[in-house]
Design a protein around this nucleic acid. Structure first.
Lengths: 226, 226
DNA sequence: GCGCCAAAAACTTGATCAAATTACCCCAGA
DNA sequence: TCTGGGGTAATTTGATCAAGTTTTTGGCGC
């Protein structure tokens, strides 16, 4: 029984019939977010056609979407690859993440009820175990789940869309950093965020989020290819 | 000799061979940005196939991209349409535009040379004539050109990508507002921006941009369907 | 090193199948 | 007879695939 990370992350309890191009998109998206694809790695349409056993049209649609997301990069001569981040890119991502995600957590602080916050705490506990065990894929999955669940509470679809896009850009590089430094080097700001949510204190939440973002992004900056 | 707005806006001096899916994307993108498609309007694959004389795979790719951009909206039952903005959407767009575009103009203020600023001033003059003449399409095209040229000077690809996406979201609604109120109601903050650029004063530029953004978005908010 | 040739991959199209909407018709009830 | 509702048929549209065409790449010989 083989079950890859991306299969787990994309499996749904409700067996709705998703179109093939959607399945391919979600699958590759998860591979990028959770580090199964390395920065700089080449992606071919044919490769995905053979790997996933679908026709070429759905694969093409999924790839165009991912390029638009910034999750993949069009290299000009018909080549597609996972982007390599420059230091300048990381600096832009830092600014954008701080702007967007701090606002999301501010809004979430005003709107989330205690049930939703409990759910968040539950995810954070799973995240803690992953960190203790040095489980890098688990860390990536739960860390992403923590943020997306948090943002869902903000009821801000446009900002959430922007935030998800930013995560797709640094996902592969985050995986590399974890592989190099392990998960220990991430002190947990999530506890501060949760406390701020319970107090319904937007500015405290935004401050904790800013620290969380900075920690992650500085790690990525240090792990950049020289 | 018929030449629509989107044809003009996408025509390039260099007749490079772009793939059909790219041509379709640029074409529909321009139609959305410059108001040839109304909010709520339905988009069909077959319609574009017939209108543009290309196969359906390139059209599908272009549509997926535009959906990912937020320029089009997937309505669940296989239907695609130009999004209608809610007041909440506009509020999110205001925050995002202020964050991203003010930072872009700050960076541009530190990097643009006087030749580039001259180019910007030239575009702004064309914009002024369009306003005087009540030329709404011209206003939309030149206004967009002003901002993209300005942002190009910031050398910040990630932030530029985010900003372009935001423009795609409110493009159709901006067209509606112009049609209702005309172009007179847009006092010109661009002069302030240009002066700030010449002084290389990032904060003055950011402030002028913030006013420009607020003016445009408040117009859109007031023009929202009741 | 330069150019030609072969193989692989991307691009495009047309055909086929499935799903959804629309049109239409028939019948019941006023 | 007229009207309205329900159900079915036809058309429209979307989804997928496979084949043909074009482009790029990489190797090989000169």
């Amino acid at each position: 029984m083989k079950s890859t990370l991306s299969e787990l992350a994309t499996s749904s309890t409700a067996p709705e019939k998703h179109p093939a191009h959607e399945v391919v998109y979600q699958r590759v998206r998860a591979q990028i977010l959770f580090g199964e694809l390395a920065p700089g790695q080449a992606i071919t349409i044919q490769g995905l056609v053979e790997a996933l056993g679908v026709g070429m049209t759905p694969v093409r649609e999924a790839i165009r979407r991912l390029i638009s997301d910034g999750a993949l990069m069009f290299q000009g001569n018909r080549r597609v690859s996972v982007p390599l981040l420059s230091l300048s890119d990381v600096n832009e991502l830092i600014y954008a993440r701080k702007s967007i995600e701090c606002e999301l957590v501010r809004r979430a602080a005003l709107r989330m009820n205690s049930t939703q916050i409990d759910k968040l705490e539950e995810i954070d506990l799973a995240l803690d175990s992953a960190i203790r065990d040095g489980d890098i894929p688990g860390y990536l999955v739960h860390n992403h789940a923590f943020h997306t669940t948090l943002y869902t509470g903000a009821h801000a679809p446009v900002l959430i869309d922007l935030a998800e896009r930013l995560w797709l850009r640094f996902g592969p590089s985050l995986r590399v950093v974890c592989g190099r430094f392990g998960t220990q080097s991430f002190p947990d700001r999530h506890k501060d965020i949760i406390e701020a949510l319970r107090r319904q204190d937007p500015e405290m939440a935004a401050l904790a989020m800013e620290r969380d973002v900075m920690q992650g992004m500085e790690q990525i900056a240090q792990g950049l290819p020289a």
